[in-house]
Design a protein around this nucleic acid. Structure first.
Ligand code: ZN
Ligand code: ZN
Ligand code: ZN
Ligand code: ZN
Lengths: 142, 142
DNA sequence: TGCCACACGTTATAGCATAACGCAATTGAT
DNA sequence: ATCAATTGCGTTATGCTATAACGTGTGGCA
């Protein structure tokens, strides 16, 4: 539950990568981002990965482990307990539609606490928790 | 929450791959498994991946999304509500020690229900749920 | 017998991620 | 101002993960 960085000054590459992700409808792979940015001078995967690393560190981008892809953070500021930008509240979860690729980002205190209780009972010290639900969104399941 | 296959007859390749995984201390990548099986005639990744696909389908092996690696299922038969071999109880979760690579497999009804409730409230139909906690196990955190 | 499903083997290719080098810009003491 | 440390950047090369596409062989079954 590391404290997120608030409003960091982004470099040019970080801004470009973030803008691409934010405008995207769904998650994007690093290589797809790279292709979108070739016109802006991007030539190599590392340019994308380095920006993604920082954006993830800032809490502005999340990596979807089950897709090897990335999304812009969908939290509104002050949306809830966490305050400000970022995830002060704890673990974030994702519901990923396998039909339309839409991603719903959410957090659930009860899940968070239940997993925390389990960890405590086992003496396990969590650093990062991944929760990803694959399935069909309401629209696609109909 | 698909019903697991019980006691399927394994092919030679599936048996070899499963045995390697079961004897391993921690998760293994497909390519590491391949290297372990070269002496048994394995030559190509597909031989491993095909076996892993089936073993996963049988519920005997789990894929760790955050590691791109695989582990043998650690559930004892009849351990709990699920009965028999497999995961009749629902979602499985993993705690992965980033120091010693030990993996603890567990399930948590409350978490399961929490996520189920969320899905129901959003009309989302889950097919597979990934829960992976990275951190330090009790021994390594000390 | 003919057909089908499935496992298997092989080669090639696609997709994801990082190592290692050198350079330039920034920062922050001294 | 100057030096050192840090950070970002660009490039090349490489490594790791996964699948496509083809053909073969085998066992069950109408
Ligand atoms: Zn977020
Ligand atoms: Zn959908
Ligand atoms: Zn299991
Ligand atoms: Zn450990």
């Amino acid at each position: 539950m590391n404290a997120p960085i608030v409003n960091p000054a982004l470099t040019k590459n970080q801004t470009l990568v973030f803008d691409v992700l934010e405008k995207s409808e769904g998650p994007m792979s690093a290589y797809t981002i790279l292709d979108k940015l070739r016109d802006h001078g991007f030539r190599a995967p590392l340019q994308v990965y380095r920006a993604l690393d920082k954006l993830t560190e800032f809490g502005m981008v999340h990596r979807l482990e089950s897709l090897n892809a990335f999304v812009a953070c969908a939290h509104r500021e002050h949306e809830c307990c966490g305050g400000a930008h970022g995830h002060g509240h704890g673990t974030v979860a994702f519901a990923i539609c396998e039909s339309c690729n839409q991603v719903l980002e959410f957090h659930d205190h009860k899940v968070d606490h239940n997993l925390g209780d389990w960890a405590k009972s086992k003496g396990f010290k969590p650093s990062k928790t991944t929760i990803e639900i694959r399935g069909l969104c309401e629209k696609c399941a109909a």
